[in-house]
Amino acid sequence: MIGLKSTLNCIDNSGALIVECVNILKNKVTNGWGSVGDEIVVVVQKARPVSAAAQASVNAVKVRRGDVRRAVIVRTRKLVRRPDGSYIRFDDNAAVLLNNKREMLGTRIGGIVSSDLRLKGWGKIVSLAPRVV
């Protein structure tokens, strides 16, 4: 249940740590609430500090504070109903940043994600995640 001003943890290696939701994209059905697998627009509220040495390497920080980016929700505190009728909920809200082509901005994911993502067409994220529940 992600809406305007919701803060989410960013669990990829794009450099963002905490992002704030400013818009839910194309989701009129749920009255503007986003759930796992939904695309949102976020503002980066907290990012890893940019250092010159790290900038040249692969793990370069790609975003800074105040950047506006697309993201996809991967975990929610709100219960999400599975197709088989069971429910799943997590301890926090989390997202993964995307570029304009709906591809991942980072190259890695550092946390558990919901397997509902695969059903919604985010198989790439599911395959990168260290654990899927």
């Binding site: 975990r75 219960l79 088989d84 009728g85 069971s86 429910y87 799943i88 909920r89 997590f90 301890d91 926090d92 946390g111 558990i112 654990r131 529940v133």
Partner: peptide, 15 residues
């Protein structure tokens, strides 16, 4: 049983 129950994933990713 299938289709029953709730799954809770804690912050330390314990299920």
């Amino acid at each position: 049983y299938p289709s029953k129950g709730k799954l809770f994933v804690r912050g330390d990713s314990k299920v």
